[in-house]
Design a protein around this nucleic acid. Structure first.
Length: 663
RNA sequence: GCGCCUGUAGCUCAGUGGAUUAGAGCGCCGGCCUCCGAAGCCGGGUGCCGGAGGUUCGAGUCCUCCCAGGCGCGCCA
């Protein structure tokens, strides 16, 4: 909203009244919303804070401020309520007409690029619903940030040289007995497609097999170590196979996420961080600034470690090994280097290449890092002003280490703008596991737990594409039964939007630090607090607009005309408050988005959208529009419907939810 | 042992910096389609807000302690 927004105007007017009435200039004027619009449209609890300074009861201060208040162009009046709240009432028609014409503009551009890193699935298995939560949260954050005027770069980090990929290579070689060339030939895209198989699903099973294979004989772990070092060495068949496997898997992940509308700008690969020696650069800087130091003696003899601030000695999280005694760098060390690169604090950069999606269809242009011979014409990646790392809360400790690394290097502001977007995992209840994976037997210990975390190693999880497929088929059946005249293409498109809407809303509706105990029935539901409920309400609003346009003329639903003609005062008092309530709820969307981003509680916006849909549905049943005979009443109702329709399409769009034409 | 998170209705969850009788969804029971699409609406709730103290005129909300559960704390990633 512009600086001329009601919120801004109210802050100023209250501040002015404070000066006049009390001779006090409050540092800030907090704003909130009254419980109902009957009590006011905006409120300020500022008098509670002033009470301490002025040594008077809040209520008395409120009376004085209200007496000195000048309503200006936005407000009708300011009332004192409760123990000392100031409740302001907007000039409704003025506000309605403004909101109809400029309600959904993006905020003005904010300088400084924001980098959001999300998804980051280990490229050795199909994506599961835990990855889905990460990607949906990350992608939605990106959409909200862009709405708030930020330039955002989306990174999806590919750990293509880790043990998880190595385990797969071991599995192909030792369990399947295949040579690298066999793997490429046997699992070519063409051949798998012809057989109706999927590489990511095959690897899902193989990975679990490898884990069991290790457990049968722990000495087999030497195979992993050997594979890993061959991978690090490079330029050998094992390393090539690892790269092949990782690349195939990444393509699958990209396709899976694309089904949900989730896209990326660049894929930085760990293999390139190694090849381009990012770590060597970071290591030098860390030594130079004494952010890390080498230990002589003790349990970490010969290691380079970082001491953690604010942790008591011996508490367990007081010291982190960054470089092992054998000279190799740990995962978190590489992560520090990567984080430094994101802020442009390293002396090095990747080369970039257009990602080869073939023979999959290239769904959108995408860049991948590479170690040499890059393509020209790529954007200037990295060098972010602020970085959000979307990673589940189990990595909080390591994320603290990364941020402290920056701080110790003297980059305090970068450290403070290095934000761990932490969220809890998606887990399965023992009952859900038995229902979804009946072939899997659970131990006594597992059955006793309230939930089981998903585990690629154990092959325990719900694959993202399976869930989407189930949603799609359910949505298709519903759409067909309700719309006999729809052609197949339209049914498919509608079902896709519904399936995606259901899934994305389900992933967004929980607050971030709550473990989502995956409930298949709830995830598949189209009724109640679900994405399709929201979509359906918008489809209904669209039908009304269409009918009004058909019957009374297209200009009757045009926002500019409605802004001029709609007059809330033609409504009776009780009806008016319900109409007004919908308008005011829509007007709060920008503030809700701001709050959602500031708190990283993206569910706030999802919840707001749901409350809006509820209010709309109730409105819909109570107030006819097309059949309303009084033209003025019809016009103001049409204005409210227009506002709802446009506002919700926009808001749902920010959650990655598209509204179908019909459903 | 230390750190972080979570305990609110049968189940799943909201509840911002103190505003009436603590709210939704699911489930259950009852209504509502000659009327803009019933994926909807309306009605039906006796909740030790985990427990105990404390601050306050006032606490689900703030502070302390305790209990229960989850997750971290590796020269794994």
């Amino acid at each position: 909203m512009s600086c001329n927004s009601p919120e801004q105007a109210l802050r100023e007017a209250i501040r002015e009244a404070c000066r006049t009435a009390l001779g006090i200039d409050p540092e800030q004027v907090p704003l909130t919303y009254p419980p109902s619009t009957a009590m006011g449209d905006l409120a300020s609890p500022v008098c509670f804070e002033l009470a301490r300074v002025a040594r008077k009861p809040p209520r008395a201060i409120a009376e004085e401020i209200a007496g000195a208040f000048h309503p200006g162009e936005h407000f009708r009046k300011l009332e004192v309520a409760g123990g000392g709240y100031l409740n302001a009432f907007l000039k409704r028609n003025v506000f309605l007409s403004r909101w109809l014409t400029d309600g959904r503009e993006s905020d003005a551009p904010v300088p400084g690029k924001i980098i959001v890193e999300h998804t980051n699935i280990n490229p050795n298995k199909a994506a599961h619903i835990g990855h889905l939560r990460n990607a949906v949260l990350g992608d939605t954050l990106v959409l909200y940030l862009r709405q708030l005027g930020h330039q955002v770069e989306v990174q999806n980090y590919i750990d293509d040289t880790g043990v998880q990929v190595a385990d797969l290579v071991v599995g192909f070689g030792r369990i399947r007995g295949m040579e690298p060339a066999d793997v490429r030939e046997r699992y070519s895209d063409e051949r798998l497609k012809a057989e109706g198989l999927r590489f990511d699903y095959l690897c899902w099973d193989l990975y679990a097999e490898v884990t069991r294979w290790y457990e049968e004989d722990r000495s087999r772990l030497e195979e992993r170590a050997a594979t890993l070092s061959a991978m690090e060495e490079g330029n050998n068949p094992v390393a090539d196979l690892a790269a092949f496997v990782a690349h195939r898997m990444v393509k699958h992940h990209l396709c899976t996420m694309h089904r949900l509308g989730i896209v990326y700008d660049v894929l930085p690969k760990e293999s390139d961080i190694l090849a381009l020696k990012f770590w060597e650069d970071a290591f030098g800087l860390l030594k130079e600034t004494q952010a890390i130091h080498k230990l002589e003696g003790g349990k970490n003899d010969g290691c380079w470690v970082m001491d953690l601030h604010g942790a008591e000695e011996g508490s367990g999280e007081d010291q982190k090994v960054i470089v092992r005694s054998n000279g190799t760098v740990t995962y978190v060390g590489k992560d520090i280097a990567y984080q430094m690169w994101k802020f442009g604090l390293l002396h090095r950069d990747f080369h970039y290449r257009r990602l080869d999606w073939s023979p999959s269809e290239a769904l959108y242009p995408l860049w991948s890092s590479c170690a040499d011979r890059g393509d020209g014409g790529h954007p200037d990646f990295g060098k972010g002003h602020t970085v959000y790392n979307v990673i589940d809360t189990r990595q909080s400790y390591l994320q603290r280490v990364v941020a402290q690394g920056l701080e110790s290097l003297g980059h305090r502001s970068e450290a403070s703008r290095s934000i761990h977007f932490a969220y809890e995992m998606v887990a399965l209840t023992p009952g859900a596991v038995q229902a979804l994976l009946p072939e899997r037997e659970l131990s006594e210990e597992e059955l006793a737990k309230s939930y089981l975390e998903m585990s690629g190693r154990k092959g325990l999880g719900v694959k993202a594409d399976d869930l989407l497929d189930t949603l799609m088929s359910r949505a298709t059946a519903e759409v067909r039964s309700r719309n006999r005249d729809m052609d197949n293409a339209q049914v498919a498109d509608t079902a896709r939007r519904i399936a995606v809407g259901a899934l994305r809303y389900y992933m967004l509706r929980f607050s971030r630090n709550r473990v989502v105990a995956f409930d298949l029935d709830a995830a598949l539901a189209f009724e109640g607090e679900t994405g399709p409920y929201l979509q359906y309400s918008v489809v209904r609003s669209r039908n009304i607009l269409r009918k009004v346009a058909d019957r009374f003329g297209a200009e009757q639903v045009e926002a500019g005309r409605l802004a001029e003609q709609a007059d809330l005062n033609v409504l009776a008092e009780d009806a008016l408050s319900e109409h007004w309530n919908l308008a005011i709820m829509l007007s709060r969307v920008p503030a809700v988005l701001r709050q959602a981003v500031d708190s990283l509680e993206l569910a706030l916006a999802a919840k707001h959208a749901y409350l809006l849909a509820q209010a709309f549905n109730s409105f819909y049943h109570r107030y006819p529009v097309v059949q309303e005979e009084d033209e003025q009443v019809r016009t103001v109702r049409t204005a409210i419907i227009r506002l709802y329709h446009d506002g919700m399409i926009h808001l749902l769009g920010l959650m990655g939810i598209e509204v179908p034409e019909r459903m």
